[in-house]
Design a protein around this nucleic acid. Sequence first.
DNA 1: CATGAATGAGGTTTCATTCAT
DNA 2: AATGAATGAAACCTCATTCAT
Lengths: 220, 220, 220, 220
Amino acid sequence: MGAVKSKRMPRAVREQQMLDAAVHIFGQRGYMAASMDDIAELAGVSKPLVYLYLNSKDELFTACIRREAKALTDAVRAGVRTDLPADRQLWEGLLAFFAHTLQNPDGWAVLHLQARTHGEPFAAEVTAMREELVAFVTQLIAVAAREAHRDPSSAERAERTEHEVAGLAEALVGAAESLAAWANTTPGVSAKQAAATLMNFAWAGLGNLMDGRAWAPPKS
Amino acid sequence: MGAVKSKRMPRAVREQQMLDAAVHIFGQRGYMAASMDDIAELAGVSKPLVYLYLNSKDELFTACIRREAKALTDAVRAGVRTDLPADRQLWEGLLAFFAHTLQNPDGWAVLHLQARTHGEPFAAEVTAMREELVAFVTQLIAVAAREAHRDPSSAERAERTEHEVAGLAEALVGAAESLAAWANTTPGVSAKQAAATLMNFAWAGLGNLMDGRAWAPPKS
Amino acid sequence: MGAVKSKRMPRAVREQQMLDAAVHIFGQRGYMAASMDDIAELAGVSKPLVYLYLNSKDELFTACIRREAKALTDAVRAGVRTDLPADRQLWEGLLAFFAHTLQNPDGWAVLHLQARTHGEPFAAEVTAMREELVAFVTQLIAVAAREAHRDPSSAERAERTEHEVAGLAEALVGAAESLAAWANTTPGVSAKQAAATLMNFAWAGLGNLMDGRAWAPPKS
Amino acid sequence: MGAVKSKRMPRAVREQQMLDAAVHIFGQRGYMAASMDDIAELAGVSKPLVYLYLNSKDELFTACIRREAKALTDAVRAGVRTDLPADRQLWEGLLAFFAHTLQNPDGWAVLHLQARTHGEPFAAEVTAMREELVAFVTQLIAVAAREAHRDPSSAERAERTEHEVAGLAEALVGAAESLAAWANTTPGVSAKQAAATLMNFAWAGLGNLMDGRAWAPPKS
DNA sequence: CATGAATGAGGTTTCATTCAT
DNA sequence: AATGAATGAAACCTCATTCAT
């Protein structure tokens, strides 16, 4: 874990070492419980150097969030072949998402647990990333809807559908996030299993909705 | 919020005041950022009294988690009439869940955000509550499966179904949790809307699964 | 110096002990070089108690300045009998001023050296005190002028006089301040000697000015 | 202010740039609040170079004091024509003094405020400069006394006068210093005005004293 | 029952200073 | 001649926690 201690490294390298250490500590202990001493020690440098390069605990935390958010969205983007049908795209996206979060448990903890738990500068960073994922899913659902009934006979149905897509995408991304946390803390759950569970859950339901077979709440 | 300051109250009442204050502060600021000073002040008592009744910050936090977890599961249980069909039970459960979390944002923040973000003594408390909810959903899914095809023709299909129920319940509860957080931070979202969104998402998907129409991952 | 260490004292007493210690350390070492650790130790208390009562280094410093400024102006006021002629009043004021500054070297150092050397919140406190002294002197000079020539024959002379009084008072107070510092660092100089030196210097000069016998700068 | 950054300059030039920067920062922020980083940056060099040339913060500060003290005394000396009568010499000296301090506010702040506010190595530097000014004034007063009454009729008076000259010179220099600070912080006050105010104040008073018309403290 | 008084320990942050190139 | 990389030491401040009344 703690990189081999060697002196006089170029700044870019040292910064990555510090971010590695910080993500690990922040992910394990939380923002407030993490001490700059511990992060510096794990990074193999002295505390003043951490401050010289990253200025403050806040900025260090923000840098962690940004790096991990970018890494995650990059991973998902890289995993999806956009020339495939919508269901295959969703499948590949989920697979890439769970694979990445399972391989980066600390990074995922920082994004999912820590960043959202501490006030506004941080939560906004995650919100931005989340919106990218939600947009991806929203677009997939829209494509799927068009694929499902090429016949745009009922304008009403189309409208209702459009109207609900946002909430559905939100629910799907939320479910994925929760499953990622669950997979991270439950031994023996692979990325493929998590993706399959969610895909089954989601795709069939979406299909039904597209066809207008929604569950109707009771009148009472 | 801060109870009117009056002397000589029975211990049980004072304790509840303290827990009220603690849940509010913990929910707003997080476990580490919350100070015993602030909690005592909001509760309208002196700090030593908080220690006399609740021993330490850890125990105070644990007491908060336990009280809020019990309140939530009680609310869900109370909202479900077990003599109704499975879909109605799930609907009522979701409704009760979202209604309670929306009316107790601080309590929900403590359970969903804070308790899971800080090491083991606390996360376990939430896990216990979560398992109760998952069990409730799991049983509903099982009932639904039996209702759907009373004819257990394909043993293979039944087995596969049983095998996945755990993951599905997990996904559903996770989606509910995410939606609760979303509803809490998005103005204008009612408990009924949140429940309807999730119910639509879930029930159709579950129904399809029950009928064996699952989405099949590609072989590659 | 360091008060006898005894536990459990009422807050007001402890606060004065802390201020005593702080004035001593600030006066000797300067605002920035003074450490809260040293002040707390000299006061015979722990550092957190200093913060509990005085909030921050800034506020502690401000409290010192205010206390010492008030003590000095009080001492001067108490030393002057306002029913005497102007010269006697000035004499008594100077005597009280030098007596007080010689008996409170640290307080005087805080006011004269430290408070003016560090930015605006602090300098303003001293300016207020200084203005009180300048006003006192200004009024004495005006009274003296009236006493000197009861015959207000030359309006021009009176006007010019009025015009210069401000600058003269400023110079006199400035001279007094410098002499106080000098007396504080030069062994064997009594308050009476310092007052006599300045009184001689000032009163004769003022008298001459009142009579219009000013030194004229060369034309070149 | 910050010199254009150019490499390979002769040492003497670089040193002056550093001293310029240091005087500016020390004057504005004070000795302790000034950081070597800021000074090096303002000087346009790297920190190790500052240490290579000036060894330590203390020595850098001392070098600043010495340079500014020399500049001030040089300016005063250069402004005085010693073949003139005493009053003209004093006038020219004051004029040069105020002109220099007004044109070098940072340097004057270093000498008057900062150097005296921090322990012994530094205060002594200023004391040396101050003594030179006091000696200059003392000698002027002596000359003036001889000019005033060439007839040393009263030995007693002469003795008393000799005895007080030190205090008087001290008071005059102190008043000048205070006025310089006042002129530096009060907009619209010229060197000539400051010099005239003090000259009026001082010369008439000194003249009176020379003639034996001193103010007598009351017997009580 | 209730509290004002008090502290040990540890947090973030900054700074003067040096080393290796 | 000049600098990027690095740190030991110490500053301010906060907090959970306890005692004596």
